[in-house]
Design a protein around this nucleic acid. Structure first.
Length: 258
DNA sequence: ATGCCTCAGCTCCTGAGA
């Protein structure tokens, strides 16, 4: 079983790339972030024609998340039930017996800003909810654009970016607290090349110079950890003509051995 | 560095992203 996450920075612009990618990478679940479209504009038919079902939660201009699945998605939840939010950032569903949460974490803009405070409150709300979800669903995957690096290994220039957004100790504390609920960073279960990133700035040839951050993550619950076979960042779509600034992350799970 | 690039929208500039 394969699960993937990809911030596509506008589904309107990136739909052909998403369909191409799915054709080459037939995953069971693809979590998308930054749809940047309202629900009535979601291209459900295009995914249906490609053999996928979709659940989506959009809004105008900003944010928006979706789960593209091969099998039916059941018990769909939109946003964090215990956290009141006007932004469309979370979609969860049970697929093939696994609870899957796709999330677009707040950016936070700058430490000390109102948006940073919102990010901290959102992270606390997410944690309280994921704690509950794990009790009901031991097999759980939390994936998406976290907008947080785990540590300096996820940062192209840790000195220059020390305590800047995505790299602050306060954000990383929240990320570790999330993991402490009983999750693990599936990417680091495996040997990875140094300077592995999932996002590169559009400006200044960021991708060509590999000036990036690893901020897109797939966390798995302890019950799923031993089923993890691989986790990789697919840089190929970042080389497309009009790429998203993010690359997809793909997790492969072994079939259950019952 | 108040810069760089990309996208959406009350679109020829601005806000936001990261």
């Amino acid at each position: 079983m394969k699960l993937a996450t990809w911030n596509i920075n506008s589904l309107n612009v990136r739909l052909p790339q998403v369909l191409d990618w799915l054709k080459a990478n037939p995953v069971d679940v693809l979590a998308l972030q930054e749809l940047k479209l309202t629900d009535d504009k979601f291209p459900a038919q295009a995914f249906s024609d490609a053999g996928y079902q979709a659940q989506w939660f959009g809004q105008k201009t900003y944010n928006g998340v979706a789960l593209i699945t091969h099998a039916p998605a059941r018990d769909v939840v939109k946003n964090i039930p215990v956290f009141s939010d006007v932004m469309a950032r979370v979609i969860a569903a049970t697929v093939d017996g696994i609870r899957v949460i796709g999330a677009y974490f707040p950016n936070g803009q700058e430490p000390g800003s109102d948006k940073f405070d919102y990010k901290m409150n959102w992270l606390k709300g997410l944690r309280d909810w994921v704690r509950q979800e794990l009790q009901v669903h031991p097999e759980l995957v939390l994936m998406g654009d976290f907008n947080i690096t785990f540590d300096d290994a996820d940062v192209w220039d840790p000195v220059a970016l020390h305590e800047t957004i995505h790299c602050t100790e306060e954000e990383r504390y929240h990320l570790r607290a999330l993991v402490a609920l009983g999750l693990c960073d599936s990417f680091r279960l495996f040997a990875q090349s140094e300077k592995s990133y999932s996002w590169w700035d559009y400006r200044d040839f960021g991708f060509r110079r590999n000036r990036g951050l690893r901020i897109d993550h797939i966390l798995v619950s302890q019950a799923l950890q031993e089923r993890c076979l691989s986790c990789a960042i697919d840089k190929a779509p970042r080389k497309n003509e009009r790429p998203s600034d993010h690359a997809p992350v793909v997790l492969t799970l072994a079939c259950p051995t019952n």
